[in-house]
Write a protein that binds this DNA or RNA. Sequence first.
DNA 1: ACCTGAACACCGTTCAAGT
DNA 2: ACCTGAACACCGTTCAAGT
Lengths: 193, 193
Amino acid sequence: MRADARKNYEQLLAVARLAVTKDGADASLRDIARKAGVGLGTLYRHFPTREALLETLLRTAWDELAAKAHELETASAPDEALVSWLRDFIASVRTYRGVVAVMMSALNDKESALYASCAEMRASGTRLLARAQAEGTARTDIDGTDLIALAGALAWIGDQPAIESRAERLFDVVMSAVRECPATDEHCKQRGK
Amino acid sequence: MRADARKNYEQLLAVARLAVTKDGADASLRDIARKAGVGLGTLYRHFPTREALLETLLRTAWDELAAKAHELETASAPDEALVSWLRDFIASVRTYRGVVAVMMSALNDKESALYASCAEMRASGTRLLARAQAEGTARTDIDGTDLIALAGALAWIGDQPAIESRAERLFDVVMSAVRECPATDEHCKQRGK
DNA sequence: ACCTGAACACCGTTCAAGT
DNA sequence: ACCTGAACACCGTTCAAGT
């Protein structure tokens, strides 16, 4: 890349990070180009789609998450590993408001610049879930996509100012369902409905 | 209301219903006015905000939900009443894509045209929850706002094409957590972690 | 190679002018 | 009383023209 192009690229990324932090995933691209002191076409040259820009902003965090998943697979108790990774995953998705919806739609579109990252996250979650399921510490009637859907829903809660303060506790509530052991139903019924 | 005004109002509502069904809560107001054969100012006269328009579109469904809540409070087993009402609530919110986010933000803004409706829904949910809690069939560490947050999160899942097919089962998963009896944790621990 | 910014087709919202 | 639509300040996206 030419030196001036590189400079524009870096400047765009720095400004975009600020803008997306402030306004979320649907921050104005025009405004980003303007504040970066760059023509609109230059932004589109470096980041042909909004997804491409978001992908670059999230790259590092997602690489770390993938690495963390591999660590946890060997280093921790399966159920604790699963919950711990999901907590990190949600925190990462919540870095920027609104990315969780973009991510979910990317999962349905192999052409999206975010597809590979999202599919990798889902694969990591699926492996951690399978390990806990094999051990009997995670319910067996859900799969990796269900898990990502639940995590996404929890991230969504964190994006809503009216209920954001409840996000952490509701994470625990939902996790209690994911970790529920198969006997629970009968157990509860015994206690008299 | 003058006869011509009434006609415009009805026409706007009919067109808006189609548009919001198709494009969700952020459907183009301009487009609605255009298709209703009415000036933009006329739309704004009848519905000063987008919330006001959505409120009118949802009015009937929400009145029914409130009535249903009161019925269930006397007619059904507390836990079944709670789950049944939440299912209806989510179905109602999901009538139009994207309303769930608008609703959550309305809950934080008493000036919103949707505030009263949303607060009423929350109040209904809170009563049904309290009844189940009193009976010991709902966990006691959540309140009505938590319940609406969880229901909203489930409605959000239903709004995402990539995971929509999982919405029903994940409803059951989350409900299992809401209905969890206090002893579950110890129970699970006994089974060996 | 890379950059610029006008051009196009859209928004939401307001308000002066009309009937 | 009620309606219209131009005006204003924004978008995203493309692409001819420039260096």
